[in-house]
Structure formats: structure tokens, C-alpha cells
Design a protein around this nucleic acid. Structure first.
Lengths: 127, 127
DNA sequence: TCTACATGGTTTCAAATTGAAACCTGGTTT
DNA sequence: AAACCAGGTTTCAATTTGAAACCATGTAGA
């Protein structure tokens, strides 16, 4: 059986759609360093809301990319960790984040050039 | 100046958010093979609507990742091509798509296991 | 001439997704 | 008792999405 993300009905589409998410990439990147508690993750990944972090982790758990373990400590402690399967992905996931950090200046320069020149214009063809 | 995608205010966040998109990854993957016309891309990338493809390409152009060239042929021909900057990204972008294709079965198995066992349950801690 | 079709889009509008903020459930310290 | 911790869920308004319709231009067919 051959899978192809370019085919609409292919189940890989569902997976790709899930991975291609800012929060997923950031969560996996952090968990690569080691297990982490919910609120710790929340503080590390600035700007993520509780709801979204909760949903993201739940999906990642279902997909077998992270595990969730609760400890019956004083206030309950919940620790999330990356699985071996998740680890095979995190390298690639982090590469995207690193690309953004490395190439942000080139992208911003391109945006400035685009906005300055063709910004509001209607597309002129080969004029 | 140090950029960090984990910081809320960092401009790399905007870039990461743009890249972390299913359609962006698929478009870049296809354009890596060579320039392509609008409707050709639309047919290759099954399931993408005209509006979304149009928006995606416009953003990628502004970000300096693809170029748009219109030819005054019979029905106008518009060709999109990847830029050198875009090419530095496409390797990574495609790696995500390939990961999905390679690991889809492991993911589906994990989902089935999760649904069968803990699916509707309330989280039981370390029981 | 009237209809139909091709390219490359934009517009419209209902439906799904998101995010901020409030709330909840224990249990603990002050 | 009031307030705070962890780890969530719920609520609701606003943004984003997607399907479908429309538009401009030009060609070919009946």
C-alpha cells in the first residue's frame, strides 16, 4: 500500500494536518529535552492558552507521540514525555523552528521589498 | 540579536505560524520539482480550494519563498516557482510530509489503542 | 451569433476553529 | 474562612476556513 499526502483521501493527510501546527512543533521541541509538567510547558511556550495546550497534548497522546503520566502528589502532578515515535519526528519538527530563527531576517526583508513595491498594485504581467 | 520561537513577541513566531501549515508544505514540496501553473498546482494538491491556494501563494510570494510570473498568452498563464530561499526550506518541509507517509501506520495503531482503551474514560492516575 | 469552456482569480456566507477569560475540583497553607 | 496551588473544562465572541458562486478575458464550436 502506497501512501501519498497529495491525495485527498489519504490518511496521511490527517496526520500531516495535525503535525503542521505551530503548537505541536513547539511542544515536541520542548519535550525532546525531557519530560515536563503541564504548567511548566505552559510557561515555556509563551502565548499558548490552557485550552489549546490541553487539546494539543491530548491529540499528541492519542497519536502516540507523547505519554501522559499523573502522580498522586499533593496537588496532582502530571508529566508529559515524548515517546520513541515522537522522537523520530522531533528532529524534523525542530528543524522547521530553527529555519524560522535562521531565516527570519531574509523573510522580513522580502516582505518589506514586496510591500514597498508591489504591495497594493494589481498584478502587472511581464510589463 | 537572538531570535527564539518560544518567545511570544519574537517575529519568528509569525514565520513559524505561516510555515506550519499543511498547504504551505504541500505547495513547497511540489514547486521543488520545478515551476508550475496555478491550475496545475490545484490539480496536483487534491482538496485545496482556489481561494486557499491563491492566498497561500500570495503569502509565500510576499515571504520571498516563491515567485509569480504571468505570461500574456492566450488564456493568461501564471507560473509559480520556488526561490533559492524557499529551496533552503523545502527539504525540511518535505521531511514532514515524508514522516507522515512513513509513520502513518504507527500513528493509526496508536490511535486505535488509545480509543479502545482509554478513549472515553476519565484520566485514571497511575492506577 | 449564441453558447460553452479555459485560465486565474475574487467574493460571499455559513460553519468550524481559536483564544481570552471565567470557572471547577481537590487539597494546603495563612 | 480566604486565598492559592495544579491541571484542567466551559463559555462565548471573533477570527479563519472552505464550498460554491461569480467575474474578466479570450477561443472554439454549433
Amino acid at each position: 500500500m502506497i501512501y501519498d499526502v497529495y491525495s485527498e483521501a489519504c490518511p496521511t493527510r490527517l496526520v500531516l494536518d495535525r503535525l503542521a501546527d505551530k503548537w505541536v512543533l513547539l511542544v515536541l521541541g520542548r519535550l525532546t529535552e525531557g519530560p515536563m509538567r503541564f504548567n511548566h510547558l505552559r510557561r515555556e511556550i509563551e502565548g499558548v492558552s490552557q485550552k489549546v495546550l490541553s487539546q494539543t497534548l491530548k491529540r499528541l497522546e492519542r497519536d502516540g507521540l507523547v505519554t501522559r503520566q499523573a502522580f498522586p502528589t499533593v496537588p496532582v502532578t502530571v508529566e508529559y514525555a515524548i515517546t520513541p515515535l515522537g522522537r523520530t519526528l522531533s528532529e524534523t519538527a525542530q528543524a522547521l523552528a530553527r529555519w524560522a530563527e535562521t531565516n527570519i531576517e531574509a523573510v522580513m526583508a522580502a516582505q518589506a521589498a514586496y510591500d514597498a513595491q508591489a504591495g497594493g498594485q494589481t498584478s502587472r504581467a511581464t510589463t
